[in-house]
Computed example of a mutant assay.
Amino acid sequence: MSIPEIKQKLSIQEVLENYQIPEKNQMCRCPFHEDQTPSMQIFNDSNTVRCYSGNCPQSNKVIDVIDFIMYYEKLTKAQAIAKASQWIGLATKSSYKEYQELPMDRLEEIFYKM
């Protein structure tokens, strides 16, 4: 399972719904900081979100489905990729193990080339 395939098959809406983060008018409360009013914008066309609060550690970062899972659950990139794969029913134990065993610098290289 490649990263582009994961990003194509798993929508940001599905990720938000999985974490029970309600949205209204393409905005939601950011789960990465205390948020009283919605500061995170949802971009369905690019399958990403972005928080515009200056109080957010992820402020102004374009966050895709894998990054969202990684930040929300405080996982490594490899673990987030494996979890996203499982959500769309494409992961096997061997593919999870494959990502777990990759050195982090190699995984990041693969990720950023995608």
Rank of each mutant, 00 (worst) to 15 (best):
P4V: 06
D45H: 11
K7E: 09
N55Y: 08
V65C: 10
P38T: 07
G54E: 12
E5N: 13
E14D: 14
Y71S: 06
D64E: 09
P22I: 06
N44C: 07
Y52T: 10
G54K: 12
V62P: 00
S95W: 07
H33W: 07
L16W: 02
Y112P: 00
S53M: 05
Q26A: 13
C51W: 01
K24H: 13
Q13M: 08
M27I: 02
N44I: 11
K24S: 14
N60P: 00
S46R: 13
S2T: 15
M114K: 08
I3H: 03
K97M: 12
R50M: 14
S95G: 00
K74N: 15
C28I: 06
I6G: 04
Q100G: 08
K7L: 12
I88D: 07
P22W: 03
K93W: 04
I110P: 00
K97Y: 12
M40Y: 01
K61F: 07
I66Y: 02
I6S: 05
K9V: 02
M104D: 15
K9H: 11
R50D: 00
Y71W: 12
K61G: 00
C51V: 02
N55R: 10
M70R: 15
T76H: 06
A82L: 06
M114L: 04
R106C: 03
E101R: 15
C51T: 01
Y72I: 01
N55F: 06
L75P: 01
I63N: 00
L16R: 02
H33N: 09
E108W: 09
V15K: 03
I63Y: 03
A84S: 13
R29L: 12
E5I: 11
I12Y: 00
S95K: 09
T48C: 09
E5D: 13
K61E: 10
G89C: 10
E5A: 13
Y99E: 07
D105F: 10
L75R: 12
S39I: 00
D67I: 00
M114R: 08
K83C: 01
A78I: 07
T48A: 03
F68L: 04
Y96E: 14
P22L: 08
P38M: 04
I3K: 03
A91V: 04
K93I: 11
M1N: 05
P103N: 12
R29F: 07
K93P: 05
P31C: 08
D35M: 01
P103D: 15
A82K: 08
E108Q: 11
F32T: 05
M114G: 06
I81D: 05
Y19A: 05
C30I: 03
Q20P: 00
Y52R: 10
F111T: 07
G89N: 09
E98Y: 15
I21S: 05
P103W: 05
D64R: 04
E98W: 14
R29M: 11
D64G: 05
G54I: 10
V65K: 03
I66F: 04
P31W: 07
K24A: 11
I21P: 01
I110D: 08
A82C: 10
N44R: 15
A84T: 03
Q100T: 10
Y112S: 07
I6E: 07
L102Q: 15
P57H: 06
D45E: 14
P31I: 06
